[in-house]
């Protein structure tokens, strides 16, 4: 009647992470409201911008070709908010105590949420791009361009997901997690996502030129539709790598602090 399982070690660390990833993905799949919203909302936004505002915004190209990268990043912000909320749910329910009383590296719970977050984003991004093409989006990207764009977006999504996980760890409740992640939903509007930044007043122009979303969007737009990229690609990469390093460290540090009382 005794277990002979051995705990600790690299193999178990991988298997624990896989178990937690499986759990988070299952929970995401079953949280139908959130999943549907994370797809429907960007689609609504895209229709709104393309059919309602788009005619009045002069970007020098077909507006849909201009706006798709911004919609993709908007989705990411939305996805991050739900990641922060599910992390906060675990941290504030008894679940985290149960997991921490097991002989596992309990940060696997964060890994699970982050990977599920990336998977949700993959789904919503695919749907958005499909819908955009149906609405007249005409990318002229080569396979290499697509791969580079996907790689950059993946880095960005990972960085944002770890940031969201960190916010979920500090939040005192699920509601405050959603409030904390409000900024991530708001930042795309202060970027070149929907309108060229040179149309903004000089103060906002400075803000939008120097926040991470603008170079990421400019790069993705350049890769997909052939607008000039210049050195924004490197700036975007630097932002994403820097952001990922910081947000991962931040989340891991907060988790350790919060769980060592």
């Amino acid at each position: 009647m005794t277990t002979t399982a051995v705990h600790g070690g690299a193999r178990n660390a991988v298997s624990d992470s896989l178990t937690m990833i499986g759990r988070s993905i299952r929970l995401s799949r079953r949280n139908v409201d959130t999943l549907v919203m994370s797809i429907v909302l960007p689609l609504l936004m895209m229709s709104l911008f393309v059919y309602v505002f788009g005619g009045a915004i002069n970007t020098g190209t077909q507006y849909i070709n201009y706006v798709v990268p911004g919609i993709i990043l908007l989705c990411t912000g939305y996805g991050a908010a739900s990641t922060a909320m599910s992390v906060a749910d675990d941290m504030t329910s008894g679940m985290i105590d149960r997991l921490r009383s097991l002989p596992i590296r309990s940060s696997a719970v964060l890994t699970g949420h982050v990977v599920a977050s990336v998977a949700r984003n993959l789904l919503s991004t695919t749907v958005v791009i499909g819908a955009a093409i149906a609405m007249g989006f005409r990318p002229n990207a080569t396979v290499t361009d697509w791969v580079l764009a996907a790689g950059l977006l993946l880095l960005y999504v990972l960085a944002l997901s770890w940031l969201a996980a960190g916010l979920g760890v500090i939040a005192k409740s699920v509601e405050s997690a959603s409030t904390l992640s409000f900024l991530m939903l708001f930042l795309p509007y202060l970027s070149s996502a929907f309108v060229p930044t040179n149309t903004m007043p000089s103060f906002l122009h400075a803000v939008s030129e120097n926040q991470p979303i603008t170079p990421v969007i400019e790069t993705v737009r350049g890769l997909l539709t052939g607008t000039p990229i210049g050195n924004t690609g490197w700036i975007a990469l630097a932002w994403c790598v820097g952001l990922l390093t910081c947000s991962f460290t931040f989340a891991a540090w907060l988790f350790r602090r919060r769980t060592h009382g």
Partner: peptide
């Protein structure tokens, strides 16, 4: 624990 720790959606 004092509060039940289960995943409602599993």
């Amino acid at each position: 624990g004092q509060s039940v720790a289960l995943d409602d959606q599993q």
